[in-house]
């Protein structure tokens, strides 16, 4: 169980509190500058909050030892990058650092993520010679290699084609069903409604609402927070929407 208690980040995030359980997929949504990445960075440990605590099974993970976080958290950052002309497989080997795996385990896990992310054709190619979307898949594979119980993904589908967007989101849902807690920042509200069990809506650093997609993706919220009018359709499979007008604000 993850319990976020009154987390604040100076000028970026007002007090945020919510709880989430293992097995859930939580979508973090909101317009640009809403504080989605700030919230995720606090959970990851790369930003220290001004106040509040993040409890995982009763343990405050904000000050957790680096090795504890290494095994607990899988993190796909918003803007991953690589700074060496190395092959995809070599980069995946670098991503096994500090996991304490034997070479057989490394080999098996790397082979597994290469398959999962459809990366086998690129395994021996330099990461710098791949397209942006292919590089993104490699980074996702590196990030998810450690099989953390808390998976945090900051706009993981950015730059991916539709097939690989769905593939990645299905993979994250699979991780959740296997017992992980998955938190994803998303801009695509259709994907958010399709793949997330609950959505947390943020706006200008303030926590607006958390609930099921049907509860959060209301016409009022969309008009007020996103400043768009939508035609929206809701049935038992989720919410589908078609934005059709920008609402001008004074």
């Amino acid at each position: 169980m993850l319990s976020v208690d009154q987390i604040t980040v100076a000028q970026r995030l007002d007090p945020v509190s919510f709880t989430a359980a293992e097995g859930e997929v939580i979508g973090i949504i909101g317009p640009n500058g809403a504080g989605k990445s700030s919230l995720l960075e606090v959970l990851v440990g790369s930003v220290l909050p001004q106040s509040g605590q993040v409890l995982w099974g009763g343990e405050n993970i904000i000050g957790a030892r680096p090795m504890r976080r290494r095994h607990l958290v899988s993190y796909i950052p918003q803007q991953p990058s690589v700074f060496a002309d190395i092959t995809v497989t070599e980069l995946l080997y670098e991503a096994t650092v500090n996991l304490g795996w034997s070479s057989v385990q490394q080999h098996d896990k790397i082979a597994q993520v290469l398959r999962e992310f459809d990366l086998q054709p690129f395994a021996s190619r330099s990461i710098l010679r791949l397209s942006g979307g292919e590089q993104r898949r490699v980074h996702c594979a590196c990030s998810l290699l450690n099989q953390g119980a808390l998976v945090i993904a900051d706009e993981p589908t950015a730059g991916l084609d539709l097939y690989h967007q769905l593939m990645l989101l299905e993979l994250l849902v699979k991780r959740a069903r296997a017992g992980a807690l998955v938190m994803i920042a998303l801009h695509d509200l259709s994907h958010a409604s399709m793949f997330c069990d609950r959505l947390a809506l943020l706006d200008r650093g303030q926590f607006i609402q958390i609930g099921t997609p049907n509860e959060v993706l209301t016409a009022t919220n969309l008009e007020k927070i996103y400043r768009v009018q939508v035609d929206w359709f809701c049935d038992e499979r989720g919410v589908a929407m078609r934005p059709h007008r920008i609402i001008d604000t004074p």
Binding site: V44, P66, S81, V97, N98, N146
Partner: peptide
């Protein structure tokens, strides 16, 4: 060698 990754990833790579 972990500096091949972006600095944003360091928080979860297990280093002090």
């Amino acid at each position: 060698s972990a500096h091949v990754f972006a600095s944003s990833q360091f928080a979860v790579l297990g280093f002090n």
